[in-house]
Amino acid sequence: MATTEVTSEVIGSVWKVEKAAGDALAEGDLIMILESMKMEIPVEAPVAGTLSELKVAPEDSVEEDQVLCLIES
């Protein structure tokens, strides 16, 4: 089992979270949408696996490289 940290590429806030902890993910699945510079920034699963932990919730502020969630695969 490997754990993959999914990080934010941008400073901004969490707009919508589309998946819940425990959900199975295929590579490229949309996990959440961030908002930054008035744009919707999709956060997609970099690998297939199980979403083991969500580290943020809607309206949270996020920094660059902040860990948003963990995927076990």
Partner: peptide, 8 residues
């Protein structure tokens, strides 16, 4: 690049 900060 609109993927990075909307291209700002």
């Amino acid at each position: 690049n609109p993927m990075i900060y909307g291209g700002a």
